[in-house]
Each structure stands twice: as structure tokens, then as C-alpha cells.
Simulated scan of single mutants.
Amino acid sequence: MHFSLFLGPGVRGPHEDRPAIDLMIEQAVAADAAGFTAVYVGEQHFNNYEPYADGLTMAAFLAGRLPNAYLGTSVVPLVLHHPLFLVERANLLDQLTGGRFILGMSGGRPREGKTWHKHDLTPEQRSRLFDQKLDVMLRAWAHRAGDQPLEFTTDDEYGVMEGRMMPASYRRPHPLFAIGTNTPAKIAEAGRKGQKVHLGPFDPAGAGRIAALYRDSMVEGGHPAELIEDNLRWLIHTKIILVGETDDEAWDVAERLFTGPMVMAPWIRRDPGQDGWSLRKIYRADPGPFAPAMGVPESQGAFLHRTAIVGSPETVAAELAGYRDAGLPHVHARFIFGTLDDPEVFRRSFRLFTDEVMPRLGVETIPGPAGDQVQIF
């Protein structure tokens, strides 16, 4: 299996920003040493989630500290960025990592759009803007000094680029990139185009359906087997992971941590009949139907099954093996969540994962670019 680390803690306010950032850096370095395939950062604004806010700047800081792992974004909300500026920053990170950078991009989060005057975009308009900006990026990556000036227009910006993009990417023809989405139609479209995809959290059955859809779409697009297999290796899916010596110990810790900020989503539909139940009892009960996407109301049990894996090393390994067998062997693991009052809780869970879970499943990494994948000028 492939394991990637997602640096996505929540904090209660500015007094926790620095401790959270320091803990993330510590864990990123440890993940690199433990054989993780990649370390991922996100992008958030004006809330208490991912307190570094600017994932690309955080990635630049980490670039010189991770000699083995890829660096990735999961995800940059493309609709908030100028496409040419994003190309420049992605190319720089590609250079700094020697081609071990992957740019995950999405259509953005509507709750942030009001700050950038995009709060009234419909989903269709948001999707159109994403496609326009991605097209500009692909054209910019293909542009060379001496070519005709690159003219571009989106619903957000327009202009003419003369000269060249700098720096050039390390990889040919551009850095790795992936479309961040949970929408089946968008996943199928990306598959037909041969593009990589990053997923959020899914239950095992839902994850299996998405993996099959993605593979079938790439086959439909006529892509070679080696590209299909490479894209499937990068098909990350996101999980909060908490490991204890025993199941009981892990769930006892989860009871404390899941009361912290940015953990229990506001759209959870609580069952009055489960009032007073422990999280473990809720997890073991029938979760009912899973929502078609994050943000749509679902039961607390469904939310826990979708987002979290909690238990002993044996239990966690068995649940992860289910995702591997469903066609998603690359786990985008988030170990820091909930209250930060006791950082040792996260250190201990992470050590148990690297020492006892990963050996049970087998660990593979993805090599950096080969010679024919590197720009030669």
C-alpha cells in the first residue's frame, strides 16, 4: 500500500497556531523517514482549520526537509487563484523537490467565496471557471520562449503572456497535478482525459464504486495500461486515523479528541435514540445510508465510517486492507485532529501506525521522475 500524510489539524485560536505548525513539521519529517509516499498540505482561509492557511508556502518550507517523500496539495481551490501565478508557484515547487511535487486542485469551497466575491457562483459556474483556469495552466505549461504570445480569457481574468513561464518545471511537460473531487461525473471526466484524481473520505463500498468508475473511464479514454496504473497509485482517499494499543484504548482517546474543533461536521444528523451513546457504540450500530457527498446530511455513524479508522494496530490494518481490496491502496492519512492539549497522543498513535500497522500491510513508495521525464534544455 501507499501512505501519504495529510497535515490538516484544527486549532481553537491563534494561541495554538505555532504549536500546531511545529507538530506538523515534526510529523512530516517522521513520515518521510518512515516510508510515506507523500506529505500533503491544504489551503484554508479565515477559520481554525489548517492554520498555516497557505499550503504552497508551507510546502516550500518543507521541500528542503523531506529527502524522500513527494510534496502535494490537497487541495488548492483553483477558482481563487490566478492560473499563471499558480503555474509559477507549482513550477518552483517542482524544481525544489526534483520533480516530487503534485498539485491537487479543486473547484473551491463555497463558504470561502464571499471573501473573493464568488459566493453567488452556481456549481455549474464554479465548474466552468475551474475548467477555464486549468486550460490556461495547461497552455502556459506548453508555452515556450519564442512562441506567439499566450492570450487567455476566463470568467475572472484576461491578458496576454509574453516571454516564458519561470522557472520551468522540473518534470516534462509540467508538474504532476490531480483533480480534487468526490463527484462521479467529474471523476469520470478526469479518467477519460487521463488525469489524476484526489478523493475525500468514502466508506469502503462507496470507495470501491469510485475506483471502478475511475478505472473504467480511463479504459474508455483509450489510455495505456502504464498510465492507468500510475493514476490509480495516486488515487488518494482521506482518513482520520487513530491507533491505540487496544480497540478500547483507541476509542477512549477518540471520545476526547472528537469533541475538539473542526472534527464533527455541522451537517451531521443526530439520532435522538443514540443520545448518551459512546462513539464506539454509534460506530458499531447500523449507520444507515451514506450521503452522496460530504456536506450532505447523514448520520453520525455514517460520518464516522466515512472519515475515521480507530482501533488497535490489528483493527486499523484490517480496515485499511478493505480499502486496498476495494481498489484504493493509497491512504491520505490525517493523524492530528481534535484538541491539541496533549500532543503526545498524536505522536503515540503515529508511532504505532508506522511500527505496527504499516508492516502488516506492506509499504510501497513512488519513485521520482526518470531521466526521460525531466526537462532538458
Rank of each mutant, 00 (worst) to 15 (best):
L242H: 04
Y52T: 00
G362K: 01
D120Y: 10
A59N: 09
G107F: 03
E255S: 13
I241C: 14
G311W: 01
A142E: 14
W234L: 10
R126C: 04
W251V: 03
T181Q: 05
G371V: 00
Q373G: 09
G163W: 04
W251Y: 01
F335L: 13
A178W: 05
A250Y: 07
M137N: 00
V41R: 13
E88P: 03
Q274P: 01
R306P: 00
G13E: 13
D247C: 03
D230I: 00
H45Y: 05
L352M: 02
S169F: 09
L352Y: 04
I210N: 02
Q300A: 11
G327F: 13
F130S: 07
D120A: 14
R139Q: 15
D22A: 15
K193D: 14
V87R: 06
Y323E: 05
T73D: 06
D32R: 02
S106N: 10
I179T: 06
A291W: 12
P77K: 10
G295K: 12
F46D: 10
A333Q: 11
T97Y: 07
A178C: 12
V197D: 01
E314R: 13
V363H: 05
L176G: 11
W267R: 12
A90S: 15
Y158F: 11
A188K: 14
N231Q: 05
T365V: 14
G72S: 12
K118W: 08
A33M: 06
P261Q: 08
E124W: 00
A321K: 14
V310H: 02
E298N: 09
A308S: 13
L138D: 14
P204A: 02
H330F: 09
A63N: 05
P14S: 06
H15K: 13
P369L: 04
I241Q: 11
E314A: 15
Y170D: 03
P369F: 06
P173R: 09
W141K: 02
P313N: 11
F36T: 00
V75D: 08
V87E: 08
L7G: 01
I187A: 09
P123L: 06
L84E: 07
A33N: 09
F303D: 04
T122D: 11
A254T: 07
I376K: 15
M358W: 00
I336C: 12
D252C: 03
Y70C: 01
I210C: 03
G295H: 13
E298P: 11
A250G: 10
E50T: 08
I336P: 11
M262F: 08
G72M: 11
L66T: 01
H82K: 13
F101I: 08
